[in-house]
Write a protein that binds this DNA or RNA. Structure first.
Length: 437
DNA sequence: TCTGGGGTCCTAGGACCC
DNA sequence: TCTGGGGTCCTAGGACCC
């Protein structure tokens, strides 16, 4: 049996753990730059505020005064996610995090009744120890577990835990009652095409001929259909494997055409990307950088350049990546545009250990590993950008807006006492944490 | 005025080869 | 007028996910 543990309204729930005054109120968490809504509390959903709504439309709306806004606080969400994963690993033989708020668990050799009981226990334990509400879906395949989780969230009588045997009347009944677009892996476009063919429900998809689906759509959809019918054909092993590309990009707080602004933004993205690269133990072969003007401004000239710079040698040294960024930017920068976004992507990633085993590949710079290791360790301990590479101008037009950010309660001591937080809630939380360990 | 960021996989089609 | 057949590799772009 496969389980999917999925936190409810994860970002909002993380905020509420430390700000209990948000309980029972409409809460929205905003994207980077406070641009649009990326997480909603149930109360906000009840106001029929859609996902992705630009924040400025919200603040102009009629319910604006009652809605609590928070900027994204990824340091907090990431840390809560790591705690959730750790709690699951303490209990389950195998755990595969799928996203920041969803984790698959593998419960081989347990009866359905035992699985269901474990699901209920996990749910209570996560609520008690982390303060997070979750739902659990249990089924024989990943896609059905995802489907069961969807039911656990939507149908109150499951009380947060839904188990589907896979090939019984109960499963079939729920599949028949669910539109095909609600299936994991079927997005808006596929749903529209499937409906044209008369495939309107999850059940109809599960009964479709995989060969035909493969021919008319893709192997992905054929697999989804088989998984719905109870035949496992997705493996989550890939989740532990290193990423094939690493990207860091952000919109600017203000549009800017200044070379120094754009360069500084790219420098920061390059440093962040290099950190991610070293954390997963890879080397990069090339650096892609891109710039965007504002698509929504039809009245302004548009320019979306991108370029790939091949590194002279495979590297995870921030300095090499910064050199590539400098070269690339010189090639694509044009002064007459107002840029709104910039990004850096690392490509051609290979495993560092395997590569360095070869005597033909000595490191390019002396003591580079020690230097990068030290920089990473200091930044982990004292906060991002404590050590930077030659970026003197810390503030610029490109800096993010995040007017509503809460404190980084679980990772920054200095922010615990910040005004507006609730020391009581924090103390309670920390006490629970220390009694666990 | 103000509209996110980071991934994956797959397919189609072009370049190139014999 | 009529213009082969088959393979590989690479890239751009589409579709999906959260």
């Amino acid at each position: 049996m496969i389980g999917l543990v999925d936190a409810n309204n994860f970002y909002v729930s993380c905020e509420r753990v430390f700000q209990p005054e948000l309980n029972g109120r409409p809460v929205a968490v905003l994207s980077n730059n406070d641009g649009c809504i990326i997480a909603r509390s149930e109360e906000l959903k009840a106001l029929e505020i859609p996902m992705g709504l630009p924040a400025y439309q919200l603040t102009n709306g009629q319910n604006a005064a009652s809605i609590h806004l928070r900027s994204s606080n990824y340091e907090l969400y990431g840390d809560m996610s790591a705690r959730l994963a750790q709690l699951l690993r303490d209990v389950c033989p195998a755990v595969a995090p799928y996203s920041i708020d969803e984790m698959f668990i593998y419960l081989d050799g347990m009866t359905p009744t035992q699985c269901h009981t474990l699901g209920q226990q996990l749910r209570r334990r996560i609520r008690r120890q982390l303060g997070l509400p979750v739902c659990v879906g249990l089924a024989p395949t990943h896609t059905l577990a995802k489907f069961a989780n969807h039911l656990a969230k939507k149908e109150p009588h499951f009380e947060g835990v839904c188990l589907l045997a896979g090939n019984d009347a109960v499963t079939h009944r729920w599949l028949k009652a669910t539109p095909v677009g609600a299936v994991w892996g079927v997005g808006r476009r596929l749903a529209a095409r499937l409906e044209l063919m008369g495939i309107r429900t999850a059940w109809a998809l599960s009964q479709a001929d995989p060969k035909q689906l493969r021919k008319r759509f893709s192997v992905v959809l054929a697999r989804t259909a088989m998984e719905l019918a109870g035949t496992p054909c997705l493996s989550m092993n890939a989740l532990d494997e290193p990423r094939q590309r690493i990207m860091t990009s952000r919109s600017f707080g203000q549009p800017t055409g200044a070379y120094a602004d754009v360069h500084n933004a790219l420098r920061r993205h390059a440093q962040r990307s290099a950190e991610k690269l070293r954390r997963q133990g890879s080397l990069a072969g090339a650096v892609l950088l891109f710039l965007h003007t504002n698509r929504h401004r039809r009245d302004q000239p548009q320019y979306f350049p991108q370029t790939v710079v091949t590194l002279p040698t495979l590297s995870d040294d921030t300095r090499d990546i910064l050199d590539a960024v400098r070269q690339g930017l010189a090639a694509i920068y044009r002064p007459r545009y107002r840029f709104i976004k910039a990004g850096v992507m690392l490509l051609g990633l290979v495993d560092a250990e395997q590569h360095q085993l070869s005597l033909l590949n000595p490191p390019l710079r002396p003591r580079h590993a020690e230097l990068m290791g030290t920089v990473d360790a200091i930044n982990r301990r004292l906060g991002q950008d404590t050590i930077r590479f030659g970026m003197t101008q810390a503030q610029g037009a490109w800096e993010l807006r995040c007017a509503h950010r809460s404190a980084r309660f679980t990772t920054q001591w200095g922010e615990l006492a910040r005004a507006g937080t609730h020391p009581g809630a924090v103390a309670h939380y920390l006490a629970q944490q220390s009694s666990r360990s």
